[in-house]
Design a protein around this nucleic acid. Structure first.
Ligand SMILES: NC(=O)c1ccc[n+]([C@@H]2O[C@H](COP(=O)([O-])OP(=O)(O)OC[C@H]3O[C@@H](n4cnc5c(N)ncnc54)[C@H](O)[C@@H]3O)[C@@H](O)[C@H]2O)c1
Ligand SMILES: NC(=O)c1ccc[n+]([C@@H]2O[C@H](COP(=O)([O-])OP(=O)(O)OC[C@H]3O[C@@H](n4cnc5c(N)ncnc54)[C@H](O)[C@@H]3O)[C@@H](O)[C@H]2O)c1
Lengths: 214, 214
DNA sequence: TAAATTTTGTTATTTTTTTCACATAAAATA
DNA sequence: TATTTTATGTGAAAAAAATAACAAAATTTA
């Protein structure tokens, strides 16, 4: 299914914009590798996989590369996204200034708590009741779930029944994908747990033999 | 290096606690598979990989399984974690109520902005100047970076030089791992971009042939 | 102009991860 | 007690991802 290469492609794209904003015109596979934490071969392998080619010894023209990568990623238009749950995490996302340059526009937030509602905010927050209608009238296709775990399934069901095709879920439970919708479960607690595991492993290694494995 | 099985092990553990809190005593591989979005074979394969065994036809005793999994994950003690950058994302993390039950204690936050400092809060927020000392005196080994990208490298360098062995970095740039420290780069913008890609792909599929691939 | 160098692009190999197939033990049923 | 059913456990195969090896083009240097 080749998921990793696609994720890296987005990384390359973001790195390319950074290089471009630095005034660069040409780029080499090892610069990109450095920027995204891959190897140069991997970068070229990925490009090869997607049919992207550069110039032997001349590297890649950033502009060319960007247009090819953006085409593959479908980054020609900006994507409207909604956030359901305007709590800590939801507001962090709604306040994040970096989305426009990723072609992402947070169109609205939704919450069940009346005090969170604010129809006049730059990114308005509507009551949950209006979620269905909003998705329909604004043809929203991508949504974020940032509600407590107990509420996540309910919100998910609404989204699915309204034809949402992509969801990032932050609630710490697994929402099952029906084939019509891609779901990405992001579990921040788990990210921390995982790094704690590897941190402990490194600690142990350090103490046990005083040097590090390659 | 077998990274995926370890990540799933943490997922199993969390699911097991949920099952346990529901009053269950015994569990089957397909229940666990369901809970974490894996297959039953995969669950058993993972267990087999870590030398965990159950009872043929009888499934697994949750209590036994938990103690074995926790032992492998080194989950006997609670881990102190610090958060550098007390902005939107940093405060979301510091306010999250779910960490204690994951054995995670957010010990303190740090920020460069004087208005964010609050030494008396339940989770105190200290000035960046005190980061070094705090890591040392509290023997902190795991940290979160939630500062803007331009500040991330600076913060990272301090952490590395003070012997931090695990970092979750939310700034959208790649922090390079030196062998002594495990770094996990979490890029929330990228998570959204990735799901947008797959959402678009599904959209296209729907329109092109009016039915779904298996 | 010839040789050396640099960097891409591709094929082959290895490692990691997932899936498949099925033997085996325990429990339930006949 | 014999048979069937239900789950586990693992070896083999397949798929995905990462790494290695190296040929070929473009450029630089001698
Ligand atoms: N904040 C973190 O660092 C963190 C870490 C790990 C996991 N999570 C998970 O992310 C999710 C959001 O976390 P948070 O810290 O923002 O929580 P939060 O409590 O701050 O916010 C949740 C928001 O959802 C709203 N809500 C509740 N039910 C709703 C419903 N049915 N429809 C719409 N809105 C509803 C609440 O009113 C609240 O505003 C939770 O599932 C949490 O477990 C958060
Ligand atoms: N909020 C999101 O949804 C989101 C999404 C994608 C990526 N990110 C990334 O996560 C990081 C944090 O995002 P945020 O929304 O919380 O940003 P924010 O601006 O709300 O918070 C950043 C905090 O870091 C502090 N800070 C700045 N320099 C510092 C330094 N040198 N040492 C200590 N503290 C310092 C600031 O005072 C501020 O309080 C950023 O790198 C951002 O790009 C956030």
């Amino acid at each position: 299914m080749y998921k990793k290469p696609i994720i890296r492609l987005s990384r390359y794209k973001n790195a390319l914009y950074r290089f471009k904003s630095l005034g660069l015109v040409r780029i080499f596979s090892d610069n990109l590798a450095d920027a995204v934490g891959a190897t140069a071969v991997q970068v070229r392998k990925d490009f090869s996989f997607f049919g992207i080619t550069g110039n032997k010894r001349g590297g890649y023209l950033i502009e060319d590369l960007l247009s090819k990568v953006n085409e593959i990623l479908g980054k020609d238009k900006i994507t409207k996204v909604i956030v359901v749950g305007a709590g800590h995490l939801g507001s962090a996302l709604m306040n994040y200034k970096g989305f426009p340059q990723l072609g992402i526009q947070i169109a609205a937030g939704f919450d069940i708590d009346p005090v969170k509602i604010n129809r006049k905010a730059p990114i308005p927050i509507f009551p949950l009741d209006e979620l269905r209608d909003f998705i329909r009238t604004h043809t929203i296709k991508v949504a974020v779930i940032a509600v407590p775990d107990i509420a996540a399934q309910q919100v998910f069901n609404i989204m699915i029944s309204e034809g949402i095709t992509g969801i990032v879920n932050f609630a710490p439970l697994r929402l099952k994908t029906d084939k019509k919708c891609a779901v990405h479960n992001v579990n921040l607690g788990l990210e921390l747990e995982t790094i704690i595991y590897f941190a402990n492993a490194l600690e142990k290694e350090n103490h046990e033999d005083g040097h590090f494995k390659s």
